[in-house]
Design a protein around this nucleic acid. Structure first.
Length: 463
RNA sequence: UCCCCUGUAGCUCAGCUGGCAGAGCAAGUGGCUGUUAACCACUGGGUCCGGUGUUCGAACCACCGCGGGGGAGCCA
């Protein structure tokens, strides 16, 4: 394959004859030379293609140069040479030029200037051509691969849990219903008979792969899911999407301490990978999006995570309750202001908070002997707050049954989940990580709609 | 769903107490001996989000609607 710009800029420039294909970012012309910067998305950097006066003066080149504008796709032939000017090590001394697709400047929305992220959201089909969104896409790709690398290197199996689920028993939030019923007819008939629906009963898009992945955990031991997840909540924030990607590992014969170790190693691995393999893109985010980003990432890339129980955390927060909008008390859900205070001000680094009150956590979490708390663990990081939430699971049948009943859930609809506790049950644990939230943390971007190519949110399903 | 802010040129915004629609950048044209957020000069560019009302007069005030942003809640 023809070398990418990234590859060309990575070799010693020694007069090799090459062809560069990509999209023009900017063109500068003087009497003595024309400079066309070409980007092909392989890296942040452009390659500068230089047409000297003689070349630029040839009629066919001159007329083609007139059609070169920001956004146009081009093919440039020339030789790769060390650059005589500052700003780039190598450049292309151009001998030939073709415009593949023009981008008329009076109509092309992207200019060679900074645009607001809000404006770029309105042209989601063109925004990957900008520095910021190109960088986000490259980091997203690398992080997705790193997720698989991390688990595969540790003997985990990737389990494809279903997108469509026939039970609404997962309890993790509002669900999108999936149906082939004709809603117009349903509306006029005044009644719904799910016997006529595609699955013969109500069906929904999944809100979590956890309950399903636990079944394979109880067979393969170390498993994980990484797939699209859907929430129909009317959430309109910089941290929520209606469609997002979630990572959920689950390990058999494991307790909460194993879970915490795994989560810590996972964060270490992802952040180290980003710092090593996305250095150019992170440098851009550090300079333009989130000053101090790289320093902040380096501080969590290795080393231990502090530990604190929920009870200790609340005691710590109560010492400073004057600074909070929401007053902390034992039994309250930790607000994002509380989480940030704990990780940034109290411990000054990553923090794992464990043993939350059972009443604010999900039914499947393992109950502690104190009968008040569950073996839950949240990982908090500076600048962001909670990035991972997980727990040891309740693996004892009677206790799980009682918990489901106490929370007013329907035992029958959990029959297969309960079977896992009836037959060869094991202590097991796992956690969940929202992939886009990881990307917010790693890139320093602040709106979750800017770290997924095509965001879905209430009243937002364009493109 | 609630609270706050906001909508003016392609983009980012200013527009005072209601009195002729503005700037920077972008674009076009010309200039410039290697530029790199190029530079210099000139030029073109408007449904002031939509509707209704108040007024001699509305970008500006009031009401309704639509769009965008931020925060909260829910959560990953």
């Amino acid at each position: 394959m023809r070398p990418s710009v990234k590859e060309l800029l990575g070799v010693d420039a020694a007069g090799q004859e090459v062809i560069v294909k990509g999209w023009v970012r900017t063109k500068r012309q003087t009497k003595s030379a024309a400079f066309v910067e070409v980007n092909d998305g392989s890296c942040m950097a452009n390659i500068q293609c230089v047409f000297d006066a003689e070349t630029a003066g040839k009629p066919e080149i001159a007329s083609t140069l007139e059609k070169v504008s920001t956004g146009a796709s081009v093919s440039v032939e020339g030789t790769l040479v060390p650059s005589p000017a500052a700003g780039q090590k190598a450049e292309l001394r151009a001998t030939g030029l073709q415009v593949i697709g023009e981008a008329p400047p009076d109509a092309y929305p992207l200019q060679k200037k900074a645009h607001s992220l809000e404006f770029l959201r309105e042209i989601a089909h063109l925004r990957p051509r900008t520095n910021t969104f190109g960088a986000v896409a490259r980091v997203r790709n690398r992080m997705a691969f790193a997720v698989h690398q991390f688990f595969q290197e540790r003997g985990f199996s990737y389990i494809h849990t279903p997108i469509i689920t026939a039970s609404d028993a997962e309890g993790a939030g509002a669900m999108f219903q999936v149906t082939t019923l004709d809603l117009e007819k349903v509306a006029s008939s005044g009644a719904v008979d799910y016997g006529y629906d595609f699955f013969g009963k109500p069906a929904f898009l999944t809100v979590s792969g956890q309950l399903n992945v636990e079944t394979y955990c109880q067979a393969l031991g170390r498993v994980y899911t990484f797939g699209p997840t859907f929430r129909a909540e009317n959430s309109n924030t910089t941290r929520h999407l209606s469609e997002f990607w979630m990572i959920e590992p689950e390990v058999a014969f494991a307790g909460i301490e194993d879970n915490i170790d795994l989560a810590r190693d996972f964060i270490h691995y992802l952040v180290q990978t980003a710092l090593r393999d996305c250095a150019e893109d992170l440098a851009f985010f550090d300079a333009r999006i989130q000053p101090g980003l790289i320093e902040s990432l380096k501080s969590v890339a290795s080393g231990s995570f502090s530990r604190m129980t929920y009870t200790e955390a609340v005691a710590e927060l109560e010492k400073h309750k004057g600074v909070f909008e929401f007053k902390p008390y034992w039994g309250c859900d930790l607000q994002s202001e509380h989480e940030k205070f704990l990780t940034e001000k109290v411990v000054g680094g990553p923090l794992v908070v464990t043993d939350y009150p059972k009443d604010i956590k999900a039914f499947y979490m393992k109950q502690n002997d104190d009968e008040k708390t569950v073996a839950a663990m949240d990982v908090l990081v500076p600048r962001f707050g909670e990035i991972i939430g997980g727990s040891e699971r309740e693996w004892r049948l009677p206790l799980l049954q009682k918990r489901i009943a106490d929370m007013g859930l329907n035992l029958d609809s959990y029959w297969w989940y309960l079977d896992l506790r009836r037959f060869g049950s094991t202590p097991h644990a796992g956690f969940g990580l929202g992939f886009e939230r990881l990307l917010l943390y790693v890139t320093g971007m602040t709106n979750i709609r800017d770290v997924i190519p095509f965001p879905r949110a209430p009243k937002l399903a364009d493109f």
